[in-house]
Simulated scan of single mutants.
Amino acid sequence: MAEPYNCTKCQESLFGLKYILKEEKPYCIKCYEELFSSTCEVCQELIGCTSKDLSYKDRHWHSECFLCTKCSRSLVEKPFSTKDKLLICTDCYSNEYSAKCHDCLKTIMPGSKKMEHKGNSWHENCFSCNRCQQPIGTRSFVQKDTHNYCLPCYEKQFAMQCVHCKKPITTGGVNYRDQPWHKECFVCIGCKQQLAGQRFTSRDDFAYCLVCFCNLFAKKCAYCTTPISGLGGSKYISFEQRQWHNDCFNCKKCSVSLVGRGFLTCKEDILCPDCGQDV
């Protein structure tokens, strides 16, 4: 005949009483609840053996205490969220905390995919091109006047076309004579160097960098033979179809500057009056 069980803690006989085995050790109901039962988060009372223990992240509730903090509806076997450790049904959470779609103004339910840009949120299907109505997803897009456009639609509807290559300008360009250019298309007609950000000039509607313009069109200094650009306010001397840089307009013999002074000519040379008397 088997020996009667005694409660492991209080040693009271369990004969004819309900008891619970834990790790093969018997406990009376009272001792088991004192030792092992959890405390309910809401009512702070023990969750007895005869009650259903609902747990979430090491926290416990009676089933009758497992309620939405906002509307008090039961959350047993229903989806829920938490805010500051408080239980909230998905409806209340959505109404109070979930983002609203910038397009349809409806709540973006927790767990559903949403798109975000500059502080605004959209349902995935609402985040679409304002022109073709196709979802943008993760493709590149442009925002204009609070509307979103995929790049092909934006280029067709808004982007200016480069005068040179006839393709849309989407990332900034150059305006020259009231016409738009890609900066990589706006180049010197001579050396093909980009002109954006540097000084240039034009002739016959063609743009030239200063070096090419001077080499092609500027008059040559009669002394040093390099071009006289005349650009940017630089001064030069002109006499009988010949030109000199100011710094080059000197007496051939004594090298004194003749700018603003009288001078004489001897064949191809220019001389100061003093040196000219010796000729």
Rank of each mutant, 00 (worst) to 15 (best):
Q179P: 07
L54A: 00
C248E: 06
K267H: 13
Y93K: 09
L17E: 15
S255Y: 14
E155R: 00
K220Q: 13
F249I: 09
Q11G: 08
Y236L: 03
R199E: 12
F66G: 04
A159T: 01
N250I: 09
V174H: 01
E34C: 09
S38P: 07
F206R: 02
T8L: 10
V187L: 00
Y32A: 03
L151W: 00
S38W: 02
T225S: 11
S81H: 09
L210W: 13
E24F: 15
D278T: 14
P135M: 05
R59Y: 14
V42M: 10
R73L: 10
W244K: 01
L86C: 10
D274E: 09
L46C: 03
H245S: 07
S229M: 11
G137K: 08
K18C: 10
C129Q: 00
D204M: 11
T225M: 11
I88E: 00
F66Y: 11
P110E: 12
M160F: 02
C221W: 05
T39Y: 06
V279N: 13
T146L: 14
N125K: 15
E64F: 14
T201R: 08
T226I: 11
R203G: 14
Y236V: 01
Q161M: 03
D204Q: 12
E45Y: 13
P227H: 04
F249R: 04
L54F: 06
S257Q: 13
L264G: 14
A218W: 00
N125A: 14
Q193E: 04
F263V: 11
F141H: 09
K25A: 15
I228P: 03
M115P: 02
C191K: 07
